[in-house]
Design a protein around this nucleic acid. Structure first.
Length: 586
RNA sequence: GCGCCCGUAGCUCAGCAGGAUAGAGCACCAGAUUCCUAAUCUGGGGGCCGUGGGUUCGAAUCCCGCCGGGCGCACCA
């Protein structure tokens, strides 16, 4: 069940072929001039360039071949040779009816599903999530949902940062504060089952230790040795480390759940550790490892590189694994377990070079084929001053505090609207939370992921304009209308298209598939956000222009209720792909 | 220094497989409600698309230079 754009592309493509031109030129797009037509084809212009012919004359030939197409009310040539296509109301109504009957609201599936791992979120042991994690979580979650909806078999992996130097830092920090702990004794244990540290301890110890490591080489070396010993399997360190991981993970899951971000896999960097020794041997056997300044590296530069790409560091001069090492071993691990056809890394754009290094190393080692690994980079979130987001005191804002701020603002707005009186305290709180999450997510996903954006809570939380709350409002208004319809015993029926607002709504509903297809191809959720907003707007127009329950004829009520129901379904579907849930009232 | 990204309306951002009059939201101005959530809708003003060249019948979009901003450049992730 294709969308109108695809069907028209086929029709017009055939007309191009019959006119002796390339069928690919028949590509149809939605009209740039909705006042003139529904769709357009610019193929005659491209054909004219190739054939050195008059574009209007070529367009005439194509249009002649289109004569008699039953769905087209008008076919016109405009300007230098645009072919403008206008559908009949009946064809539009038929398509709307298809969408209404479709549990996928007009969206298609990929022809050949792939197994895909989306690696996102990037939480770390001992580090509370901060605003920097917001984008990775929001964008990754949306891409995961989009790929899954398109029909791929998708696994979201949190890829927990639970290995490497920061663990050594924590171990020496705890050892310094509580040297009497059993964990620091040699031997195989047993070791205490209770964690000697709380989340607050970890959050206090880690930044202090990280800062000290920068200024005190002795301390840094101590931590490096601890890291190496942990990775070598020292039992006490392992036992202590497991406590760090558990304390951190349970806190992180709470944070992610608040954002409606859910992972299928909580694999950590440590899971790749058992593979490292073997992997290093394999890399050695393949002749990829080179000893350089005491470290073992893989050279990944290529002749046609425009700059000097540093090698991938596989084993540090201390003998420990680096994040590139675990990333590489993780690819090997995934190859052996899930064997995905695609791995998407939703990570800050600033790590682009790192991923180029890791991916090339993986290709060289034969752990993946060219094109199976993809870095989905994103820009930073900046403050209203245009600089990376900071708290008023200049520190990094915790994600938890950010969500609290947004929720508080949502409560204020809802109270202003008098919603507090209508809902139970519990329902009010749930709604406020939904509004807050919608505001944050829509603001983030509304902009193209690659560019940085300015975080302005007041703007995001506005109930007017291109915001999450506006979209929720439209959905809520529809739900309210449908409740009234149910009370009145009115039901949706055959869809008819008569009013201009109905035409526009039908065309917008049809555009869902195109938006999703492009969002999928470009890994760009902002296109879904854009569609959701257009749909909400088209509905608002329809709602203002067309009486629904109070329409005079029962057929019209039924038809319009069909539009209403379908709009709600597609809107909630689109918002769902953005990770946004709608409340019942607001 | 080398490389990557960005520069579009007062502000925040789309558009960039070249194509008609460059769009949206906010802000500003003017309207609309006996009726389904007006937290809405309608209309209006506002732009040498950073800049200078080039390719093309046609450039915000492609190529080159320059200016301005952000970021990255192995033993932290």
């Amino acid at each position: 069940m294709q969308d109108l754009r695809r069907r028209l592309s086929d029709t017009v493509g055939e007309a191009f072929a019959r006119a002796g031109l390339a069928a690919e030129l028949g590509r149809v797009t939605s009209s740039d001039r909705p006042d003139l037509a529904d769709f357009q084809c610019n193929g005659a212009l491209a054909a004219a360039k190739a054939e050195k012919a008059n574009p209007r004359a070529l367009a005439e030939r194509v249009v002649a071949e289109l004569a008699g197409s039953p769905d087209l009310a008008r076919v016109e040539i405009a300007g230098p040779g645009f072919i403008n296509l206008t559908l009949t109301d009946a064809a539009l109504a038929a398509r709307a009816a298809e969408i209404a009957a479709d549990p996928r609201f007009g969206a298609e599936r990929v022809a050949v599903p792939r197994r895909v791992i989306v690696d996102y979120g990037g939480p770390n042991v001992a580090k509370p999530m901060h605003v920097g994690h917001l984008r990775a979580s929001i964008i990754g979650e949306s891409i995961k949902r989009l790929f899954r909806f398109r029909g791929d078999e998708v696994y979201g992996d949190a890829h927990f940062g639970d290995w490497g130097f920061q663990m050594g830092l924590l171990i020496v920090a705890v050892a310094e504060e509580q040297p009497e702990l059993a964990f620091f004794q040699a031997g195989e244990g047993p070791f205490p089952a209770e964690s000697p540290v709380s989340l607050a301890d970890l959050e206090r110890l880690y930044p202090a230790a990280a800062a000290r490591a920068k200024s005190e080489p002795e301390f840094r070396d101590l931590a490096r040795r601890a890291t190496a010993e942990l990775q070598a399997g020292r039992a006490g360190y392992r036992a202590l480390w497991r406590h760090f991981v558990e304390v951190s993970r349970s806190a992180l899951i709470r944070e992610f759940t608040a954002l409606d971000v859910n992972f299928d896999l909580w694999k950590g960097e440590s899971d790749a550790d058992p593979l490292i020794a073997e992997m290093v041997q394999t890399l050695e056997d393949k002749g990829l490892l080179v000893l350089d300044q005491g470290a073992r590296i893989i050279r990944v530069a290529r002749d046609d590189d425009k700059r000097d790409l540093p090698p991938l560091l596989v084993v540090s001069s201390e003998g420990s694994a680096m994040y590139g090492t675990t990333d590489l071993a993780t690819i090997l691990d995934r190859r052996r377990t899930l064997d995905p056809q695609l791995m998407l890394y939703v990570v800050d754009q600033r790590q682009a070079d790192h991923f180029v290094q890791v991916f090339r190393a993986a290709y060289l080692a034969g752990f993946a084929s060219e094109g199976e690994l993809e870095h989905i980079g994103f820009g930073t979130m900046n403050g209203v001053d245009g600089k990376p987001f900071k708290t008023r005191e200049g520190g990094v804002l915790k994600l938890h505090d950010l969500i609290s701020m947004a929720t508080e603002k949502a409560r204020e707005r809802l109270t202003e609207a008098g919603l507090g009186a209508e809902l139970t305290a519990e329902a009010f709180e749930a709604t406020a939370h939904k509004v807050a999450v919608a505001a944050l997510k829509f603001a983030d996903l509304g902009a193209y992921r690659g560019t940085s954006y300015i975080f302005d809570l007041d703007r995001f939380m506005s109930f007017e304009g291109k915001t999450g709350p506006y979209l929720l409002y439209q959905a809520v208004r529809i739900k309210s209308l449908l409740r009234k319809a149910a009370e009145a015993g009115a039901a949706a029926g055959a869809i008819r298209v008569t009013e201009p607002a109905e035409r526009e709504l039908a065309l917008t509903l049809d555009a869902f598939e195109g938006a999703l297809a492009e969002a999928y191809a470009k890994r760009a959720p902002n296109l879904i956000a854009e569609h959701a907003y257009r749909l909400a707007q088209a509905f608002a127009k329809f709602y203002a222009a067309c009486p629904i329950l109070s329409a005079t004829e029962p057929e019209r009520v039924a038809s319009r209720l069909g539009f209403v129901q379908t709009t709600l379904g597609q809107l909630e579907c689109a918002l769902g792909l953005l990770g946004i849930a709608t409340p019942e009232r607001m």
